[in-house]
Amino acid sequence: MADPSARTGPWAIEADGLSKKYRRGWALRDCSFRLPAGRICALVGPNGAGKSTFLGITTRLLRPTAGTVKLFGVPVSDPAVLERVAFLAQDKPLYPRFTVAETLRLGRELNPRWDQAVAERIVRSGDVPLGARIGTLSGGQRTRVAFALAFGKRPALLLLDEPMSDLDPLARHELSGLLMAEAAEHGTTVLMSSHMLAEMEEMCDYLLVLAEGRLRMAGATDVLVPSHTLVTGKAVGGAVPEELQGRHTIVESHVTGRQFSALIRTDGPLSDSWDAGWEALSPSLEEVLLAYLRSPGAPTLIADEARTTDQQETAA
């Protein structure tokens, strides 16, 4: 009751029934989740899943058709959220005729919380000359300047739309390291969309999966991944054994000859596994993600922590 920011403080993003309709149809439909502050969150989904639409809404570039998003308790309809959020678009738009120093000055002129030292450190650590024009920089250097602009703003939440997609492996490695180090140092919450699942696994501790505009999975990776098991064994009548189907949720299954393999969400212990001739393995994050992305019919999984329920809101 005392301070409204204390209650909403731990949530960097709270989306409630978020929907966006374009002329061609729904790009985002009824997304509700919340992201705790301080997490590095991956936003995963196939092309056209609604990732960029979601990022556009949270950065006030798009207006949602329905629903609301709050960033640190402030609704995005309030221009004040801009100060707390930095956004790095996929193509990293910068003015090509500005020099690096002028690009940083742009950040300083347009942001009251600007931290020139942080921005300059990021630029200098990549040996990007301050006097060079943006148009003459390489892709990696441009991305570094864009990162400097984003971190110089000292955002509480950093949104990145496929930040590494156009970089060579070396630059990607270097900038991933930079991103992780800066985020850790300032306690920045990061939400980044990406196709590079293996890379996401290393960097992220939280996961949002979108497919066809709907939220398929949300939660911390150390909660989501262990709740799945990869089971292989002898198929019964050309299908996954009844016992598995009845007791657990099958996300994806294949039957090849007499063998089956299935990724299941375990709703209890996998009993009698030795007797039944099954083999259970722990899947990697990538395997879980691929299974969900390949099977649109699989049930949605939202971890308790990521759930926005009215009960939780009012109780707190």
């Binding site: 950065t59 006030r60 570039l61 801009l82 100060e83 959020v85 930095a86 956004f87 678009a89 193509d91 738009p93 910068l94 003015y95 090509p96 742009l106 950040g107 347009l110 942001n111 009251p112 919380r113 703003k153």
Partner: peptide
């Protein structure tokens, strides 16, 4: 050039 997204996502 997409720079509209750059200037409109700063604090002003």
């Amino acid at each position: 050039r997409g720079t509209l997204r750059l200037v409109t996502t700063q604090s002003v």
